[in-house]
Every structure is written in C-alpha cells, then in structure tokens.
Amino acid sequence: MTRHTPPRPADVAALFPELLPFRRETLRLHPRAGNPTHRESSFGGPLLWPVEEAWPECADADAHVDLGNGVPDGTATPLVPVLQIHRADAPGVPFPDGTDLLQVLWCPFDHDPQYCPSPVVRRRAAAAVGEVRTAPPAPAGATEEYVPSPCVLHPEQVTEYPDADLPGDLRRVLRERLALLEQETGLEYGSDLASAPGVKLGGYPGWTQAPQWPGCDACGRPMDHLLTVASWEYDGVWSSWIPLEDRPAAEGGREDFRDERSLSVREPAGLMLGDAGGIYLFECRACPERPVAHRFDCS
C-alpha cells in the first residue's frame, strides 16, 4: 500500500521565504510489518548477500559496554540486518557509480562511546549477486529492542525544513513570526512543519538533542545525512505526520499510543533506541570511498 503524508497544514515557503534555501527532500520509508524476501527492499528483513562473501561480524568488540542489556559472550558477534533498499525504490537518493543496492547492518549491543548499536554500510550491484547467503541468527543475548522485526517499505518523498539544524541567527529572525503562527493556529514549527519523523533517507537527521553533525576524517568536509533510524514513526508531538492510510489504526490508540493497532504503525519494527532515540548515519559524498560515520541521541 502506498503511504501519503498529509500536506503540511501551512505553506512554509509562503510564510517564511527565508527558509527556502534550506528546503530538502527526504525519503520516508514507512516500514510496516511484513514478510519481505531477500530480493526486496526491507527494514529488518533478509539481505541479498552473496554466498561467497562472509557474513560480517562486529569489528568493535572491544567497545562493547554493559548498560544493563548485557554484552556478547566473547565469541564473534554477527551483525543483524537493519535496512536494504534498491535504487529503484529510493528516488532522489544518490548511489555511488556501479551500485544500486544499499545495505545497513549493526551489532545489537551497546558500544562505547555513544552507547548504542554499531552500524556498518555496504553498497553493491544487485545483479552481481548470484547464490544468496542465509543470515545467521541474532547473537545470543542480543538486546531485543535492537533487533528490528522484518518490515516491508513504503517509500515516499516529502519536503523538509530544518528544525534542530535551523541556524541560530535565522531562528532569532523568525522567532516572533513562528510564535505568532503558533498562537493564531496552534501549529508548532518543529513538530508540524519542519522535518519528518521516523525512518528516512536524506533530508535532515531526526535529532532529539542538539545536532552533532560529523566532519569527514579524510577531507574535513561536513558529511551528508544518509539515514535516520528512529525508535518510532510518530508520537503525540508528531501525529500530524501520520500517513492518511494509517490514521484509522493510529487513532485507535490516540490517548496513549500504546494499543496493539496503534503500535503497528508507531513502532512496526519493535525498536527502542535508548529513551526513544535514533541512530543517524552520515556519508562523505566528496570522497570516492564514501566513508561513513554515525551519531546517537535520545531523550
């Protein structure tokens, strides 16, 4: 089923033309519980992984830290699938030449210094994969909330504006007008008009705290946002972003968002990263190797 985010309840470009240079397109992935195959784009589903290529294991074993969720038992720790998306399902997302498949995996234990799963990114040409390797089971003792349940994707392009990433000088210029809009309409810029919540490619990271935008270690340039992996698709603050097709289910638990129907939309993959936080992946598109970094924050 295609997902359609409702139009924003106010025209940001018309009300705040100063924001036009900061407008970006993001691809909301809208994962929903399903049974994807290894040939399909998915979240937490099986990967198109060549049998001749070893399944990746955690390279940060020395960084495992026990925050109450446990640590591996000392054996090699296989990574778990997080995202697989084909270029055809990712309009507007740049892929390196010769690749058309993006895969993200992570180690489902906490790691120093960010106290979160440790992700890795793989890019490949899907047609070059012949026989497919079956993924090993999640490692024993893995944090349950760090192992996403298989979901199919419903990609949708939407327009975003910066919230946490809004430059401070511009925020000061707009402060009175934003406050007036909220007073007159009840619309809050950050939650109703700026950046979309949930799992998404491109656009602006879904920061909970102050931005921690990384620079590339190789060339020093600011890295580009690749992927936000969020704990949930929406909460009471972001409820205006719930797709039209999901509103009957989401509205069933509007008071506390915890009933089974609501959770199928709000937390389809069963993730909980810290206190409803997110992991943000970045890449340097100026360097041929496309180096990757990640950041984590939560409430």
Score class of each variant (00 low, 15 high):
V121I: 07
T143G: 10
R3I: 01
P6G: 11
P137L: 13
S240T: 14
V12M: 06
P31R: 04
S42N: 14
A76H: 08
D165T: 03
D11V: 09
M272V: 11
S191K: 10
V129D: 10
E176G: 09
E40L: 00
T75L: 13
C287R: 01
A10W: 15
C151M: 00
F109A: 02
L101V: 07
Q212H: 07
R177E: 10
L166K: 05
Y234E: 04
A250V: 02
N69I: 06
D165N: 10
A63N: 15
G68Y: 13
S195H: 00
D89H: 12
E255A: 09
M223N: 08
F22W: 13
R28C: 10
V265R: 06
V120G: 00
V158I: 15
L102C: 04
C151F: 02
S240E: 14
V93P: 05
N35L: 13
A61P: 02
K200L: 14
V158A: 15
A250F: 00
F43K: 09
L226M: 15
L273R: 02
L180W: 11
P17Q: 03
I85E: 07
T5V: 10
G202S: 06
G253T: 03
P155T: 02
S195V: 03
V80K: 04
A230Y: 06
A14I: 11
T37P: 00
Q103E: 04
E283M: 11
R8I: 12
T77S: 05
L281V: 03
G203M: 06
T26C: 15
V292M: 15
P119D: 01
E156P: 05
L101I: 01
A164H: 14
E52I: 07
D11E: 08
D62W: 09
E52H: 14
V152K: 07
M223S: 07
P7R: 13
R133A: 15
E267S: 12
V292N: 06
E233S: 14
L226P: 03
Q84I: 00
C216P: 08
L178E: 07
A249R: 04
G92C: 08
A33R: 15
P167T: 07
M272F: 11
P248N: 04
P162Q: 05
R39E: 12
A63S: 11
H30I: 05
G215F: 14
P36F: 00
L79Q: 05
P96D: 01
P148W: 00
A88E: 14
A250M: 01
L29I: 00
P6F: 04
Y146T: 01
P81G: 03
S118N: 11
S118M: 03
A54E: 15
V12P: 06
G34K: 04
L19T: 03
D217A: 15
R175P: 15
A276R: 06
W238H: 09
D89P: 12
E131P: 00
E160R: 01
A196S: 14
E176Q: 10
H64Y: 12
A76Y: 09
G236A: 13
D192F: 04
C116S: 12
A210W: 05
A249P: 00
L48D: 10
T37K: 02
A76G: 10
L187A: 01
V93D: 08
G74E: 07
P113C: 11
N69A: 13
H86L: 08
I242D: 08
E245Q: 12
K200R: 15
G203Q: 04
D165E: 15
P113W: 13
A126W: 09
T143N: 14
D11A: 10
P214R: 05
S231M: 04
D235F: 10
